[in-house]
């Protein structure tokens, strides 16, 4: 599954058959991947796909069950402290120290990395500027907004000038403005040559930030490539989204009572790996109605997606067939569509 060039540059992270089992579940099931220095690498997948478990193993706070993992060429089991010394970690939920001020959070964290007090203080000042929190430096963490806390957590992760920054769902729960500010800061870090590894279940985030990503589902990697490559491989250029009235949906057989296994009508001959569901045995009525209009048709509970190179043309054709959707939207296809194609499910419910 890996397509990383095996050149003179050693990968920063190398996983082979990496597995994490908990008593009740297998969270990560024998995955392989490499992350090259300077790269921005993403794990995309729904909740419970195994992203966070993978991140925790890379962060040396979760022993691996089987397989092998090398970070900076070192073994997390034996060299945890040496690896962590070069990592910056932004966990999924903020673990800021509520008993300390904004600035103290950074300074004390720097001390954990054996920075001198002076150096930790100097870097804290710079980082607070970088994440635009300098004017809050004396405040407690409690009153900060979600976006501010997230920025502070990122500043904290940078205090040791890490070679590798691990970000677990960096913008989950943030408003759009806060997300864009964060993305911009992360982009600047990437420009400086910091290697970023992040998990997300937001398509736009993965498209914005990742040079390369893997899509995870049910503890396994189901696809890998750059965002563009994945879209080209698993989706069409455009998507036509149609919403029908309740009555029309019943007539089309995509109402709430429809069998989800039968809701895909496929006119697509490009097979996705590791799946046998898209075998064209879709709902007869859907096939009939949309035959020839798109490469592939996907019926979601609330709308129907037509995958096609030209959405406008498809929309016109839909009308010509006498179908009258309540709303019509033409958009470029995204990683969301790739995920839907690969797993038959949407990412964020």
């Amino acid at each position: 599954m890996t397509s990383v060039p095996t050149g003179p540059i050693d990968p920063l992270i190398q996983a082979r058959g990496l597995t994490k089992r908990f008593p009740a579940i297998t969270a990560v099931d024998a995955i392989d991947f490499d992350v090259a220095p300077g790269e921005s690498f993403g794990f995309l997948g729904p909740n419970g796909a195994g992203k966070t478990s993978t991140m925790r193993m890379i962060g040396c706070v979760s022993p691996i069950t089987a397989g092998s993992l090398r970070v900076f060429g070192l073994d997390p089991t034996a060299d945890g402290p040496r690896i962590r010394a070069r990592l910056g970690v932004v966990p999924q939920s903020d673990t800021l120290d509520l008993e300390l001020t904004v600035r103290e959070n950074l300074v004390i964290y720097g001390r954990y990395f054996d920075l001198s007090r002076g150096e930790a203080g100097r870097r804290a000042g710079e980082l607070l500027e970088f994440v635009q929190l300098a004017e809050r430096s004396g405040d407690k963490v409690e009153p900060l907004s979600g976006g501010m806390r997230r920025r502070l957590t990122i500043a904290r992760a940078l205090i040791n000038e890490p070679d590798l920054l691990l970000l677990d769902e960096p913008t989950t729960g943030l408003d759009p403005q806060a997300r864009h500010l964060l993305w911009e800061r992360l982009y600047r870090l990437k420009q400086r040559g910091v290697t970023l590894v992040l998990t997300t279940h937001y398509m736009d985030e993965a498209e914005q930030l990742c040079d390369r990503l893997v899509i995870m589902d049910k503890a396994r990697i189901v696809a890998e490539g750059s965002p563009r490559e994945l879209i080209e491989r698993y989706a069409t250029r455009e998507v036509l989204e149609l919403r029908f009235s309740e009555a029309d949906r019943e007539a089309l057989g995509t109402g709430p009572g429809a069998d989800p296994a039968d809701r895909v009508a496929s006119g697509d001959d490009r097979a996705a790996p590791g799946e046998s569901r898209h075998d064209g045995r879709g709902d007869g009525r859907l096939d009939e109605r949309f035959a020839g209009l798109a490469e592939r048709v996907e019926a979601l509970p609330d709308r129907i997606l037509l995958y096609t190179a030209d959405g406008e043309a498809a929309a016109v054709a839909v009308h010509e067939r006498g179908l009258l959707p309540e709303s019509v939207l033409v958009r470029r296809s995204s990683l969301e569509d790739v995920f839907l194609r690969l797993t038959g499910r949407t990412l964020v419910d």
Partner: peptide
């Protein structure tokens, strides 16, 4: 609750 140690363990401290 505060998860103070989770943050600490992401550093070289064990």
């Amino acid at each position: 609750y505060d998860k103070v140690y989770d943050a600490v363990l992401a550093t070289p401290l064990g």
